[in-house]
Computed example of a mutant assay.
Amino acid sequence: MFDFDAGKLIVIGIVALVAIPSKDLPRVLRQLGQWTAQARRMAAEFQSQLMEAIREADLDDATRDVRSALDGAKQAASFDPLSAAKQEIDSALQGPPAETPKKPESAGENAGPSA
């Protein structure tokens, strides 16, 4: 945001010495120090709140991942390949339902040979 290097700070200091009377200089420097300290405290507080929010977001993501893994494990536990195989074997052994043979009802069978 502010790009102050050593040269710019020296120029600002010289301008401050010229513009501010010498009797007010200690009060101005003290005020500047207080403002700087307050800005640093605010920045540190903001940074700590941001880091806490990031940790909570990571915790929420981790919790979501664990829950989805547990749901997957529950679904895998409900899958029983032996019972599925048993059902398939039972259905194969029973076979398709037996159909009763139908007698053809044609007129030629009851009449016998003609001649």
Rank of each mutant, 00 (worst) to 15 (best):
F2G: 02
D61Y: 14
M51Q: 15
A43R: 12
I20A: 06
V28L: 03
S48T: 08
K102M: 11
N110A: 13
R40P: 00
L59W: 03
D3V: 05
W35N: 15
P97N: 09
P101T: 14
E109D: 10
R27L: 13
A57C: 05
M42C: 05
L32G: 08
A107P: 09
K8S: 01
D90Y: 02
V18C: 03
R67W: 04
P26T: 04
R30Q: 08
I10M: 07
F46R: 11
W35A: 14
D80E: 09
L29W: 02
P113H: 05
P101R: 14
L93M: 06
P81K: 07
P96M: 10
S106K: 08
M42R: 15
E105I: 13
R55S: 07
Q38T: 11
R30V: 05
I14H: 03
M51K: 04
F79T: 04
P113I: 01
K102I: 15
A76L: 07
A44E: 10
Q75Y: 03
D80W: 03
P21T: 07
Q47S: 05
L17H: 06
R27V: 14
R40I: 07
S68A: 09
A107W: 13
A16E: 06
P21V: 08
S106D: 15
N110M: 14
P21R: 14
D61V: 14
G108S: 10
M51E: 15
I54F: 00
A39H: 09
K74R: 14
G72F: 06
A115I: 04
V15S: 02
K23I: 07
K74L: 10
S106N: 15
D24V: 10
D80H: 08
E45V: 01
R30L: 03
R55D: 13
K103M: 10
Q38A: 13
S22L: 12
T36I: 11
K86F: 13
R30C: 07
V66E: 10
R55F: 04
G13M: 05
L50R: 13
F79P: 00
I12L: 14
G33F: 06
F2D: 06
A43W: 11
G33Y: 00
V11S: 11
F2H: 00
A44N: 05
I54C: 01
Q38I: 07
P101S: 14
M1Q: 02
Q38G: 14
L25V: 03
P81A: 12
K23Q: 07
D71V: 07
D24T: 10
G72R: 12
V66H: 13
D90L: 12
A77P: 01
Q94M: 07
L32S: 06
A37G: 09
G7Y: 01
Q94L: 09
G33K: 06
P97H: 05
A43N: 04
D71M: 10
G72C: 02
G7C: 01
A37N: 13
L17T: 02
A57K: 09
V11D: 12
M42Q: 13
F2Q: 11
A77D: 11
L25N: 01
